[in-house]
Amino acid sequence: MKILVTANKVPFMTGGAEYHIRGLIAQLQKQGHQVESIRFPFRFQPESDIKQLMHYCQQLDFNAPNGIKIDKLISLQFPAYGVQHDNHSVWLMHQQRSAYELFKAEQAGQAEKEFRRQVIDYDNRVLSRVKNRFANSVTVAQRLQSNNQLSSVPLYHPPFAEQQFFHAESQNYIFCPSRLERLKRQDLLIEAARHLTTPVKILIAGDGGQKNYYQQLIEKYQLADSISLLGHISETEKLTFYANSLAVFFAPYDEDYGYITLESQLSAKPVITCNDSGGPLEFIEDQQNGYICEPDPLQIAALIDKLYNHPQTAREMGQYGLQSYKNKNISWENVIHQLV
């Protein structure tokens, strides 16, 4: 089958999306399909750029460009999913978040409101003409249902290099890998560290826009002896930090999917998350394979201390996490089977 995959490209910004896109293409090829991808250059600002891209995408017809018939189109991202094809599947990573769950009506100016109206109109139009709709997670599917009244099937996929995760005897630290951004809320963990009663350490990996802010916060609270920002770490280092950790803290605000939950479970580690974290809540059962609490540093600190004081419980929760990941039967084979 000739399959075209459309997605965005944000140059030199690697994150979950990039792994997701490359993973899909590689797996389609592995199944013997002829795959090509079209990546639209995407800029978050200014909004007029996004509007132009919306306008451009919705006019594109990929049924048989230049007389070459394409059997199947799979779109992953806004606004690339606006292109046309008779056999079009959208596997929605997320929508334009600034127009939906991150939109704050009271702070928005006229331009933002107009942009939001246009995005919603675009999604309603282009997504309703798609043959099959899938979502990255239940969270994303629910948003699409409540925002645009469009149904979609949640479809999980495994994280990158799934088989390389391993488990080791836990050492006394909480691991927190993520880009250092406000939405990932590493500051909740830093605040929590002030209230810890045990000598547990906190290791935060990743780079990002909030690095200086978080570093200042650590210095301000004089937490250098218990928290360390690791910065960028290699893939193997990431695996090893997961493997040796006591538990993982991952409590972003309304995450779409979140590889980190799955990666923690693959390393057999419990996850502490918050009740407004979105994607992780689909995988964490409170008290079973992790903890779900309010986005409150005090509660978080209490849970970390609890895990420190009961390493056996932590180990068991981790093992149960690995089991619950396996029970979900997440595989690329299944994904491709459903998509194609």
Binding site: Y173, K201, L203, D225, S226, L230, T236, L239, T240, N244
Partner: peptide, 19 residues
């Protein structure tokens, strides 16, 4: 304490390097 956390990080990284 700071030395301790640095030591911890170094150990994990060394383990990764071995892998």
């Amino acid at each position: 304490s700071i030395q301790e956390i640095q030591q911890l990080i170094e150990n994990i990284k060394l383990q990764a390097e071995t892998i």
